[in-house]
Design a protein around this nucleic acid. Sequence first.
DNA 1: CGCTGTTAGTTGTAGTGACAACCAAATGGT
DNA 2: ACCATTTGGTTGTCACTACAACTAACAGCG
Lengths: 164, 164
Amino acid sequence: METQWLDQTEREAWLRLTAVVELLPGVLDTQLRSASDMTHFEYLVLAMLSEAPDRTLRMTGLAQRTNATLPRLSHVVRRLEDRRLVERFPCPEDGRATNARLTDAGWDAVVAAAPGHVDTVRQHVLDPLTREQLGQLKEIGDALLSRLDPDGRMTVLYDPERAG
Amino acid sequence: METQWLDQTEREAWLRLTAVVELLPGVLDTQLRSASDMTHFEYLVLAMLSEAPDRTLRMTGLAQRTNATLPRLSHVVRRLEDRRLVERFPCPEDGRATNARLTDAGWDAVVAAAPGHVDTVRQHVLDPLTREQLGQLKEIGDALLSRLDPDGRMTVLYDPERAG
DNA sequence: CGCTGTTAGTTGTAGTGACAACCAAATGGT
DNA sequence: ACCATTTGGTTGTCACTACAACTAACAGCG
């Protein structure tokens, strides 16, 4: 079967998506690293913990919420533990599982980093889009994620608890 | 000044964008690496060269077309050169500049990799979107890139030569 | 010319992520 | 009860990227 090449519309959309995917992480990382001495991914980890009940989450759950693989998360959490921002302890209910909990220092770190990060997100992503485009972006994102992560294993998009 | 936190619409859009940005590179890398023994970024480099006149581009131009920094590109091109997919030679017109040219083996490699790559892009990105959403994605991408890369230094979006 | 500044690119090194191998606890069938 | 499988997580190694420092060549100006 012949490969179906991209027509102009497809090419235009694809070109821009790749550019965004290539450039956005760098912008986020640079800001957080210089302002708060942490990676965007580290920020995500801390932020997810900060919103969890008892500031505690199992590694697997944390991995889902941060779109990460378990090995990657394990390394990062160990480093965060070295910096006393997070602590790990075995899960009482399941001997295999490990819980990660945000320390007070970790809480302070997220609280300190959040405003600058949110500003960056506004400046580079939210502000340039119209209200209508935000809605479109959500729909497009859902469509893509249905293929990128069919089982929704990584992306916990709806959180009925919070979606008040 | 108080930080303006994200409302629900903003949060929904942002959450999905981060997930896509986090997951898409992995999908592309995995497919290309297993099928063609190359990174998505390496593929981009080879593909851009393959479309250039004389299959040759200056490092700076190549960096722009691949949304990369010069140091990063330099390392990657050296590795590609080790694999005989690319060759470098000093630019005759400008003693400072270096030209990168795709070798015949490099050409064969892109040609071999392209169909599988395009299929992956179709499956994971293009197919799940409607024609209308493709247009929206282009507009959204342009809006974001106007902030992520204001000078358009990295993103060479329009290529009048090819945009029949 | 010579000096200064800018542009083009390379290289060293330190930090991170991917992948595979591994271990331990739980589950399930017989 | 017992063994096989699955689940949850960690660790080691290797490859890649970012950042900074550096070199070489051009350009402008006195």
